[in-house]
Nucleic acid binder design. Sequence first.
RNA 1: GCCGAGAUGGCGAAAUUGGUAGACGCGCGAGACUCAAAAUCUCGUUUCCUUCGGGAAGUGUGGGUUCGAUUCCCACUCUCGGCACCA
Length: 850
Amino acid sequence: MFKITDYAERLLQDLETPNVIILHGLGGNGESGWGADMQKYFTENSIQSIAPTFPNSSNPEYSEWKQFFEENILERITPQTIIFAHSLGGGFLQKYLSEENVKVKFSELVFVAPTIGDCGIAEISNFFTKEFNYQKIAASVENIFIYAGGNDPYITTEEFTFLAEKLSAQLILNENQEHFWGDWKLEQLPELKEKCTKTIASVLDWPEKIKAMQRNWIGKSTGAEIDFQVENSDEKIRVYTTRPDTLFGATYFVLSPEHPLVEKITTPEQNNEIAQYKVTCAQKSELERTELNKNKTGVFTGSYVINPVNNKKIPIWIADYVMMGYGTGAIMSVPAHDERDKEFAEKYNLEILEVIDGLENPFQKTGGIVKNSDFLNGLSVEEAIEKMITFLEEKKLGEKTINYKLRDWIFTRQRYWGEPIPLVFDENGKSFALDNSQLPLILPESANYEPSETGESPLSKITEWVHVSGYITDENTVIICKESEVPENKHFQNFTRETSTMPNWAGSSWYWLRYMDSKNSDEAWSHNAEKQWGPVDLYVGGAEHAVLHLLYARFWHKAFYDLGLVSTKEPFKKLVNQGLILSYAYQRKSGGLVPSDEIEEKDGKFVEISTQEPVEKIVAKMSKSLKNVVNPDDIVEAYGADTLRMYEMFMGPFEQSKAWDTTALEGMNRFLMKIWRLFSEKEISEHCPSKELIKLTHQTVKKVSEDIDNFKFNTAISQMMIWVNAFQKLDTIPKISGGKFVRLLSPFAPHLAEELWQKFAPEDETISFRSWPSYKEELLVEDEATYAVQVNGKLRGDFTIAKDASKEECIAQAKQLERVAKFIAEAENSGGQIRKEIFVPGKIVGFVVK
RNA sequence: GCCGAGAUGGCGAAAUUGGUAGACGCGCGAGACUCAAAAUCUCGUUUCCUUCGGGAAGUGUGGGUUCGAUUCCCACUCUCGGCACCA
């Protein structure tokens, strides 16, 4: 198994965008130098950042800085925050985080040449009166980095090393660098710039939907675990609850049927019934258990627990709506404020006691005031949770707990096709990793891929592969070899190999790293290749990967990050989900679906051929049973791959599901034929096109280029259609314009574009080696503007005027428009007058007449 | 139930720092070419009214802000996708 649960918190945290705080040093400020550069860089890349300036930074007073920090900065620190702290800013933070009553938690702390001690500078001696609490600093933050120069005049390399060791921080030392001066530019500090770049690269530009699915899958909740004493017994039962504030309202207790204490606490009278119920539950399939979730069942054990806050006796039941796999497998039931508990309590006639007041819906999880609860009465739910946890922790009855739905990952498969696992077992069953020199471990050849009758992996039947000999190295790894090759001081012995293979997820959890260095025969990937290429800039795939592949991939990548094998915390920068292509299907009034080949169209309506019953045209997933599957091979055969590609791009927004429509596809084929005729029937000339057409060509280059960046292929194609419609009116095609167009077309319709390019550059092997066309912004500037004229917000006409016409000119011109004058006159006749004149340069002239 | 996305002509859609709603395409209608058809080209195509100048309404529903709302705010309806006895 893989212990993915250890990464649950980080897999959750890193879905959120970080915010950055940059602290300057002695005599510095937040408005200039590399701190300000850094802030700008982050902001440009949609990361919130601040670079505040401390008061009296040249003559600093710790208490003053502390006050400023707490008033202006503290509230911005979240678990996602990254703090860059330069020089004295770093010294300040060491001191501040060491203070006993300071409680902050954040993600990353990047020290940049931090002061250690007072560096012999009198002005800052008040910052360094005592030894810092390094343990506390390290506990406040997940990762600490120290960037430093080997020739720093204030702090020695030994001191940096000391700090790195104390904080378990990563020290990035540039031997030739001295102090990182605050007024330097970010460009002068390449290591730091790279750190920023990597931070930006690690921010997930993912659809909210996928992030939400991952959050949901990880399923974090906070609450408390509470021990309940079983009456007349030494046993305690521990429950997990997110609502410790409702402890006084707990009126019964439920264990999962698989809970280990069930047998022990069941009374003799209840024994039969409990045993029977357990058998019933064990026989229920997964499906039955979910299907039956509306009809709860359970059995009383005969025993009671004591509620630790009021010593009330609470009956213990078992029920299969409580699962062993989550929390502690036992719950305290508060039927007044939990829907499931209420349903169960009503069915079995158990007590229901309200403890929260003032709720519209008794099951809502926030708001409300606690009642019937002794020392919690009158508190809000949030306050009561806090107070109850403190109470439980003080009395040693329980503690605050975090729970995740995410489970550990069973990684072994008993089948042939999978990567074999490089582990061997000695004769006592102790496991060893194969030595690096033995890798990669290759799947043995076999004629038999079927699993064995015992359910063991097919590999277990290849005995000559399973049973091997070798020795254990000093690193506790195993080298397989002949007896003669064993070094003198080592013991030759027998091993058996692990015969399970890895799941399909194994390869998909790291393949992108291999892609970065696919020819490397010494290692899976080199650090340099990863640094150069990683992380993956853009990952296009289906939303069905939201919680398996994409979560596993993130998990592996984080494990690699911890091992220092990759330089970013996240593998995929931007994720885009393409929409599904759906298809039309036909539905009877009764709801049944009819295959499309049993449908005919009559007067624009659709009827079932056999019965003539009208049916409705709907959009549905392609499936064999609906006979609405479109086979791309048939489309390529009939129209060509270019038509298919372009039609799919033109159908609508990339991320949206869209219905296939073969008649619309023919329109795309028509467009491509039109392009073909345009360039083959008309001569390509050296004529200079008109000013308008030059402008159109440049507009088209701009629009198509930008739309590609934004995945807006549909509107890029619209623009190309506009271009073609305009140029087909000409007798000859100007070479420059046509050449630009064909290059724009090439990623959309590569076959056609390649063919057409021969007319422009027959010497070229392929159009792909040509550069992307460029456009000139100055050619796009209009010299005339068309103004829409509104009276009281309604469009009443328009006029065209020179681009640089003044407000006064435009308003005068607008007033002369017949319809405008008419409406103004009408309003004035009924007692109104012009109250306001609106002028939006280049767009609108408006009059408000009242 | 919870989470996420969406709703614009006959159809796929376009337009958001608030500024001429419907670009582009499909379909449909008319015309040109043709003996004829296909292909191609041209024109028209949100709805209603019209004295043919125009006028009114209109982006799921109901409110609000604004000179002006597909765009911003509040409430709601429906559709699609995901999760679901998680305490």
